[in-house]
Each structure stands twice: as structure tokens, then as C-alpha cells.
Design a protein around this nucleic acid. Structure first.
Lengths: 360, 360
DNA sequence: TTCTCTTATGACACCGATGACATGACACCG
DNA sequence: CGGTGTCATGTCATCGGTGTCATAAGAGAA
């Protein structure tokens, strides 16, 4: 592989002049420049990043650690896809910064993050991003040198800067919108409370009910999330069956996520209940493969992964450039409600009445 | 950041001795080694890959280019996920080789591969892998220096080593299995013929029919693939409706892929046809989120992405180590049929009869 | 006892860029 | 016409490791 010295010799100039042509950091005569460029082309010269980095101490690398690429060991788990959008957002917002993103994968094993971080540090990355597969708490090793680090879709208790989805607000907005559509009895098939999204979304659901003066009814809430294990469909079936037999049954089922909604579609159809004319369904995640392909298309809440990625990259770049005015605490990013045909607008007359009343 | 000189000074040895401790390439006295290790720990020393590479000329890097991370601009396209499995396979098989995988993303724009390759060459990667989002032909720039390159899920007409799914065999095996199950009238809702998978699978379908002496009936084949544009559901509806009205209607619908099968489920249910009791459905891809979550679970053909990734990594490593006995042409990887409840076994009595007849 | 032969370690140059500084050639100014 | 500034280019040292070779200290052989 040709070096800058070879180029210099062919072009009849000093290596430093070649360097100037490459970097444009000092004026170079037109004829000289052209000679250098010709030599570069002739030799297929590609500068060595390693050598450049030795002197400049700037690697131009950002390290990204994720489990996105390996799926979780449970084959039924759809993991992976969400994180991709985060990574995509990061890419997009890093593309113009001159930084190169190095992505490494934990293979789903969190412990593997340690050697990966080490590898990145050997490459002298200027910043690190850790992307988790779902909203969760993590405990990564402390980076002893000062390399800035950002957590995306996760947080720790050391106060490492984090970018998180605003699950509370998302569920709140969805339920508020359902209420606006005239729904009063809102069933909620929740995610397991052990995960952050499960807790926050349930709180958002309760808050939205309360804001409209609708009492919380525990009979309308069921945790049917078995973490991907078998029996989930049966659990859902039983919960739905039970709720539909209530004297005042729900007019809509909110599902912990879109994948659960996909199951619920199948169950309701097997029960002979038509969606959305007899009962409405809403999801969460805006997992497009499901939400847009289902018939009818699914009303859901967008998990703003791309936006989170963009924010993560921005916040990291701010840290790298040593911006003083730095945000503290996690950055919450809310996603919009996607209103599709899986939810019926109930009693539109009454709704407009309600609305006008509320507006007074 | 500490250097090897700092460590040497603290430990009271020469930098070269520290280097020996780090690399274990020459014997070092026990006491000395321990002193060095203590100094490394004390300083949080992390060696610089750049400096190391300057002399040794071995980067230990493999460059991977993909569009997996950015989804295609069409939001309805499920792209991305499949490639991930390929990348996962590559990771897995590279993990023990001491190589670090650098992943870069084209953002869905194939032209971006050029600057990305350049970036990789600047980092002096020892090998390159290009992963395409679906089985297709590509035209990448020639790598002028001798860096080995592998294509995964795609091929070019320069004979660059490629790893491809065996779409022909997959569809063939599925249809053969359907025939074994007693199906004789097999509808096929194909992918568009412009893509490699569309052509190869259709050929596999025809070959399997022919192998069992079943005549090919064009009325049972329809291309309903609009490349994600609207109207696909309607097109499918019409095709299915037309086929079901035939005097001898299909007993099973093969779908171009699992996502199409998801749509077909919805359509058949809307038509009041029960799956699988009244009509069977099969997909392709083994796109688990769909195939396993659907009710009933979908019979489909696995696209052996992980295996393809493993093969890609292996073949690349062989090229890097300058293995002489090198494979020529593309490596075809076949995936198994996943037999699930969406297909009815027809007339088992007759089937066994047929079988025994055939065995004579 | 002297001569190899390991073993353990150090000295030093070098990989391929770039930063700091120097230099020569003009142009412009008073 | 000398002083000053700008442009274009070169010289040289340096970044942080490692390959090569040298060397000192002991172990075993002659």
C-alpha cells in the first residue's frame, strides 16, 4: 500500500505538501495540487487513519454498543428491530459531523459490553453510546478515562446522560385520545410491571383516566405478559373473556404493545367479536410491520426511536465538544399517537357535546 | 491518556518490556510482569491500536457494509430485519478470530457504500463484507488494493465471492412437502419477478410440481407484489377471489413471503374462509414475528440468514489467511421448511396410498 | 575454568502521518 | 528602496507502539 512519501516522490513535492492537499489546511499552488492529485490517483493512495491519528490525537470514531444485531436467546422475542431505529437516528445525525460510527454487538450478553468498550478505547473513540433493546436500567462499567458516554433506551443510577422514551406521556396521550373518542370503559392488557415501560405506561393510563374524572377499575386491567413464554395467548384469552363478561365491559382494549395487539386481534376474531365495530383495539410501539399490515390497521403510540437516536448523537456531540451548558438528567422523548382504524369513534354526537362542555 | 512510556517508567522497566507483557511474545520475569501489570492497572493504561498498527500493519479489523440499520425510505417495507441475522452470524463466527467487526450503514443509499469503503480502507481493514437487504445483484466499485471482499445476500457480475440463499431449493422443498401432504392444487401469490427471489422461488415451485407430475396451471399463479405500494391488499383479494372461484380451486396458497401471508390471513378471514380447515396458507422467510405470532402459526421456509453470515465470515477468513484451496462461485445456503398449523394434511389415507404407490 | 546457550531485558530505529517552524519569492506600502 | 505581509513550500521532530539487534546474567557443557 502506497504511503504519503510515495505520492510525494511521484509528484515531486514534500510529504507535507501532499498532506496539505489532502487536508486543505493551507494554500497549495494549483499546478502542485494537480500533480499531487494525479500521483494519488496513479498510486491508488489511501491515507492511513492510524498514522494520522498518532499525531492529531483525533480518531474521528464514535463507538456504539448494542444488542440489536443479535436477537435475544428467546426466539419468540421480536427484539432487535426497535434498537435499529435508534441506531439509524444516530447514524443520520452523525453523518454530517465527520465522525465514523463503529458498531459492536454484545450478542445479547450484557457482560460482553466490557471487552467491547475496551476495544473501542484502544481505538481511542471520542465518544460511546450504549443502546439497550428495551427501556431498562443497566449497570455498565465506569469508563475510567474521560471518554464521554451516552445511554440510549436505558439508564443507570450513576446519572450517566440518558435518552429515554416518554412511556408515561405516550400511554397518557393515547388514553386521553380514546376518551375523546367517547370511550369510557378502557381495558388495559399490560406489560409485566418489572420492566420500566410496563410501569410507566400503566401510570400514564391511570393519569389520563383521572384527568377526565374516570375512576380506575382494577377489573379492567390485567397483566398478560409472560416474557415471551408459552401460555400468553391463553392468558390473554382468559383476561379478555373475563372483561367482556363484565356487566359494563370495555369498549376498547389497550395492549401493552403491538405484538400483544396482534395476538388480541386473533383472539377477538376467534371469539367472533369484530374489530373495530364491536370492540376497539389499541397497541403501543407503532411497530409498523404489525400496525400497518394488520387489518384493520392498528391505532398505537409511536416509540420515537429515530428521534431518540438523533438526540443521543446530538447530546454526545455536545459532550465531546465540551459544551458547558449541558443538560442534566435523562432526556425524555415523546412519540405521537397514530390513530388508525382499529378504534371506533363512539357516539360522535355525545363526544362533540362533551368537548364543547369541556371547553366552557 | 497514559502511554506505554508512562507504564514503563512507573514499573521501572523499558517500554519494550511492557510491550512484551502486553503481547506475551517473549518471556518476562515473574516479578517484572507483576510490576508492569500493577502499573497498567494503576494508570488505567489502554494501548493504542493506532500506534500498534503503524508497525505491525495488522489492523485486526473487518469492515461490514449494510443497509440493515436504516430502513428503506418506504415505511411499509419491513426491510432491515433479515440482514441483521446475517450480521449476527458474521459476528458470531468472527468473535473468536480476534478480529473486530466495524459496521457501517449505507442509510439505504447504495451509493454511500463508496465513501464507506474508503473509510474502511483508511482504517486498513483486513477484509470487507457487503450485506444486501434482499437477494439481488449489485455493482460495487472495485477495491483497487488487494483487500479481500465478500458479498452476502447479493452477487455481481465480476465473480466476487458471494453467499446466497438457495431460494429455488427452499420453495421447491416447501411445495414438495405440500404435495406430500396431499395438496394438488397449489396457488402461488408470487413476489415480483424483477427480484431474484421472485424468479428463483417460482422456478422452484414449478420444478416441484413437475417432479410430482402435476401440471403447471397459470391460473393458480398471480403476482401481487407492488413493492410496498398501496393496493397490494386489493390485488391480493382479487387474485384470491378469482382462484377460489375456479372449478378446481387451490387447497393451499403459497405466499411470496410471510408478510404477504399475514395479509392473506386477514383477507381469507374477511372472506369467511377458515385457515387452515377450509384453505391452507404457506409463507416464505420464516419471519418469526409474523410466522410464530400468527394464529394459526404459519408454515414457511426458513431463510438461513444466520448460517449465511457464518459462511460469509468463514469464507472471508479463508481469503485473508490466503488459503489457496478457495471455493469458486457463489455459496448457496438452503434453509429448512418450518411446518406449522397453517397447512392441513389432506386425506392422509390417500396420501399414504399415493406414497406407497410411488414407492413401488 | 572457560565457552556456549538460554533467559531476561534494554537501546534504537521505524511505521506514516502532521504540527511547529523556517524559508524563499513576490506584492504592496510608505 | 527597505520594510512588512502573504503565499507556497520544505525541514524536522514527534505521536506510541513494536521489530531487530545487542547485551548482561546465569545454567549447563566441554
Amino acid at each position: 500500500m502506497a504511503t504519503i512519501y510515495d505520492v510525494a516522490r511521484i509528484a515531486g513535492v514534500s510529504p507535507k505538501t501532499v498532506s496539505r492537499v489532502l487536508n486543505g489546511d493551507a494554500p497549495v499552488g494549483k499546478a502542485t495540487r494537480e500533480a499531487v492529485q494525479a500521483a494519488i490517483a496513479q498510486l491508488d493512495y489511501v491515507p492511513s487513519n492510524a498514522a494520522r491519528m498518532m499525531r492529531s490525537h483525533r480518531s474521528g470514531l464514535i463507538g456504539l454498543i448494542t444488542g440489536a444485531i443479535s436477537m435475544s436467546p428467546e426466539p419468540t422475542q421480536p427484539a432487535g428491530l426497535p434498537e435499529l431505529f435508534i441506531v439509524q437516528g444516530i447514524q443520520k445525525s452523525l453523518a454530517n459531523s465527520g465522525m465514523t460510527l463503529m458498531i459492536a454487538d454484545t450478542g445479547g450478553v450484557v457482560e460482553k459490553a466490557v471487552p467491547l468498550i475496551d476495544t473501542f478505547l484502544r481505538h481511542r473513540v471520542e465518544g460511546l453510546i450504549y443502546v439497550a433493546e428495551y427501556h431498562q436500567k443497566v449497570a455498565l462499567p465506569v469508563i475510567s478515562d474521560g471518554t464521554p458516554m451516552i445511554l440510549a433506551n436505558c439508564f443507570d443510577d450513576r446519572g450517566t446522560p440518558a435518552i429515554l422514551p416518554d412511556d408515561w406521556r405516550g400511554q397518557h396521550d393515547l388514553v386521553a385520545r380514546l376518551i375523546t373518542a367517547g370511550h369510557r370503559r378502557i381495558g388495559y392488557l399490560t406489560l409485566r410491571p418489572e420492566i420500566a415501560a410496563g410501569r410507566l405506561r400503566l401510570e400514564g393510563y391511570r393519569a389520563a383516566l383521572q384527568a377526565d374524572g374516570i375512576p380506575y377499575d382494577a377489573a379492567l386491567v390485567a397483566n398478560c405478559d409472560l416474557e415471551g413464554r408459552d401460555g400468553e395467548t391463553q392468558l390473554l384469552w382468559e383476561a379478555i373473556d373475563r372483561m367482556l363478561r363484565l356487566s359494563s365491559p370495555p369498549t376498547v382494549f389497550c395492549c401493552g404493545n403491538d405484538k400483544m395487539a396482534l395476538r388480541v386481534y386473533g383472539i377477538l376474531r376467534s371469539m367472533g367479536r369484530k374489530v373495530p365495530t364491536e370492540v376497539s383495539v389499541a397497541g403501543y410501539d407503532n411497530y409498523r410491520v404489525i400496525a400497518e399490515t394488520l387489518y384493520p390497521p392498528l391505532t398505537t403510540v409511536d416509540l420515537p426511536y429515530t428521534a431518540m437516536g438523533v438526540r443521543a448523537a446530538q447530546r454526545l456531540m455536545a459532550m465531546i465538544s465540551g459544551e458547558t451548558r449541558e443538560e442534566k438528567g435523562p432526556t425524555l422523548v415523546a412519540g405521537p399517537v397514530y390513530w388508525r382504524d382499529s378504534v371506533t369513534e363512539l357516539r360522535p354526537a355525545n363526544v362533540s357535546l362533551l368537548k364543547s362542555v369541556r371547553e366552557e
